[in-house]
């Protein structure tokens, strides 16, 4: 039972991180129908910024809590800056071109960012300081759950609640929903679509940055390539849940996290990714639009 619980919580942690990244994918997709392949790189840049900030602040002699907060804030700021700049350079000029052009542009951006960090920093794995404090209450349960996992699950939950509130009740949230439904119509009723798109990238990037910092301090090391794998997984999760749907992305991420966790725990750890993708194919055979995606019937 303990083993089951450990795997369950491990899967929940994994799923939470996937959810933080998958939301960025699904929101961007919902609004401009683009698979933003470089989204994983934004997460990687967030983690690197936090690492650099934490090291510099550590040498300057700040306390651990200050470091955590400042590193997190800087990671979010820089991830947003990169996300918005990327949108302006690589996607905005392509808004009216063929469907595949922005996808290639996104793949190009992803390769560019990976090599940019590789060249400007290093190709080695860098140890990431464990910024998250240890909780003493959890000491007796250490064999089941680590305190960083608790932080990840709680933070993700908090972010989800904030995001839901933002989308449901604020002006910009309403504008986002309108743009996702019908961009031309939203423009006609006076929604500033460019601003909505920038805002989507900002929200998506900041969640990716939070995910990046959390997972980096949980695992304890990063390199330039972490974004790619995480990005692919999160994308899988978003599709699993039904791309474009926000609750779908969260559900898909959790399902994917549990699938991986239980499959590696009970069957074999070598085939972790095979289980993830195999499960995706299986789900899509029976529900071609994902778990929560609406099956659209095309009218002629």
């Amino acid at each position: 039972m303990d083993y089951f619980l450990e795997l369950f919580l491990g899967g929940l942690t994994r799923g939470s991180i996937y959810a933080l990244i998958a939301l960025g994918y699904t929101m961007v997709y919902g609004i401009i129908e683009l698979i933003n392949f470089a989204h994983g790189e934004i997460y990687m840049i967030g983690a690197f910024t936090a690492l650099i900030a934490a090291s510099v602040l550590n040498i300057m002699g700040f306390g651990p809590v200050t470091i955590l907060i400042l590193a997190m804030v800087l990671a979010i700021v820089y991830s947003c800056a990169y996300g918005v700049t990327m949108e302006k350079i690589a996607y905005k000029p392509l808004r009216h071109s063929t469907r595949l052009a922005p996808l290639i542009s996104a793949i190009g951006m992803s390769i560019f960012f990976q090599n940019y960090v590789l060249l400007a920093q290093t190709s080695d794995f860098l140890p990431f300081p464990s910024l998250l404090p240890e909780l003493e209450i959890l000491e007796p349960y250490a064999y089941i759950i680590r305190s960083s996992e608790v932080f990840i699950i709680l933070t993700t939950f908090g972010v989800m609640v904030l995001l839901t509130l933002l989308i449901k009740f604020t002006r910009i949230g309403k504008a986002m929903r309108a743009t996702a439904q019908d961009r031309t119509m939203a423009m006609l009723v006076g929604v500033d679509v460019n601003r909505v798109i920038s805002m989507t990238f900002i929200i998506g990037s900041s969640m990716a940055a939070i995910g990046g910092v959390l997972i980096a301090s949980h695992i304890g090391q990063i390199n330039f390539y972490i974004g790619f794998i995480a990005g692919i997984k999160a994308f899988t999760a978003a599709v699993l849940g039904g791309i474009g749907s926000i609750p779908g992305a969260v559900l898909g991420s959790l399902v994917l996290g549990w699938t991986e966790s239980f499959a590696t725990g009970y069957i074999s750890s070598d085939y972790e990714d095979v289980f993830a993708f195999g499960f995706l194919v299986l789900i899509l055979i029976f529900r071609p639009a994902g778990l929560l995606g609406k099956a659209t019937t095309q009218k002629v």
Binding site: I89, A90, P93, L94, S97, A101, P102, I104, S105, I107, G108, M109, S110, I111, F112, F113, Q114, N115
Partner: peptide, 10 residues
């Protein structure tokens, strides 16, 4: 290579 992909597409 990455930059060329983006620039070509733009």
């Amino acid at each position: 290579f990455g930059a060329v992909l983006v620039i070509m597409m733009v």
